[in-house]
Design a protein around this nucleic acid. Sequence first.
DNA 1: GTAGCACCGTACCCATCGGTACGGCTTGCG
DNA 2: CGCAAGCCGTACCGATGGGTACGGTGCTAC
Lengths: 219, 219
Amino acid sequence: MEDLGPYAAEKSGSRRSNVERREEILGVALSVLTERGYRGASTREIARRAHASKETLYAWFGDKHGLFEELVRWQAECIGAAVEPRLEPGAEEPSEVLRAFAVELQRLLLGDRAVVINRAAISEAPSDPSFAKVLSAQGRGSIVPKLVRYLEGERDRGRLDFEQAETAVDVLIGLVIGDQQVRRLLGVLPMPEPEQIEARAERAVESFLALFGRDNPTC
Amino acid sequence: MEDLGPYAAEKSGSRRSNVERREEILGVALSVLTERGYRGASTREIARRAHASKETLYAWFGDKHGLFEELVRWQAECIGAAVEPRLEPGAEEPSEVLRAFAVELQRLLLGDRAVVINRAAISEAPSDPSFAKVLSAQGRGSIVPKLVRYLEGERDRGRLDFEQAETAVDVLIGLVIGDQQVRRLLGVLPMPEPEQIEARAERAVESFLALFGRDNPTC
DNA sequence: GTAGCACCGTACCCATCGGTACGGCTTGCG
DNA sequence: CGCAAGCCGTACCGATGGGTACGGTGCTAC
């Protein structure tokens, strides 16, 4: 991590909260990214709208790539963090746990921030796969293992039935997200309303349990 | 369609196959797009590698946007055309028809051409949604109705059971594609091998029929 | 009070982009 | 043979990009 704050990190008390300023700049970068895409988001415009100088911007983040890598990392961490606590096994019924998970997963993957960041990663993937790597590692790479562990735990409890946990995870994600994410990325699908998210989560989990639940409800 | 060939379309016999030349240029444009993305694909490089002049290029396609719109349209038509004949209802079992459909859908949506074109549409979506519109209309917009019609036909024959055909379509697509497409777009998933595609198609259709087939195999 | 530091705003450098113009070459045709 | 059309290669234009340099300003520390 060659990253650095301003020159004097915190040695001399840093008269103002420069971490706050940092987030402010990142927020501006995010909105410019939203409007113009990665290539169209110029450092000039970011600096101007953040009332910062380009020099400061480059001193803090190294270059344009470094600035947006910060954004990607931030978003990726959000996904991993927000989904984790919903996957506690044991107490509640799998239907309830999975429903909450399905709602949260949709909110995160289909939300504006995720869409914008994923667009940037995808558009830069041919020439520079680093955004995509980070996003994928912190996103799917952190969620799937937790989900696998949870599902296997419930299987051991006798509440689920499957052979390959990875396959079950694939099915669950497919049922919950479907092609919504791609359509969001293309800009042809608006963010679903909360009740639509709930309905889809309900339906997805119902199907999932019909396939992998131990108590087949149709018999 | 404001499109045009060279000035004399075919009036004077067009000494060489200029449609062939056109496809040659589009092929070069596609490979440059593959390597550099939409913004990074300069008309200079396309002209140079196609041994064409920029002037010719602009005379034929109008501008950069027009050139790539041709590509998008071409790819979109391929998807719609290739999937259609596999959805003939009646003779064969739904499991067989859907399996073939699932294989073809994966081949088309996960193939290199589709990935590259979708990347371009996604990266330009914030500032110019026209690529995404075309891609979505010709792709999903043409497949889903056919699929709906097929599924409803089989339901009327008593071989499937569901209420909302659109929901069933959603489930099917989710099971077949899952998040493979997004991971392909991010560049973190290689094109699956044919046997992997077959296996996934098999599994997806099996699950689909477990949910919507009339003959529940688990009872 | 004053020296120094971080920062802002602006101007600047150089590369590249989309799009256009031009000279020269090939080719089909009368 | 000569003409005209189509096209290639190169050069050019204005605009904009990432990245750097510099003078001015306010705040902190001593």
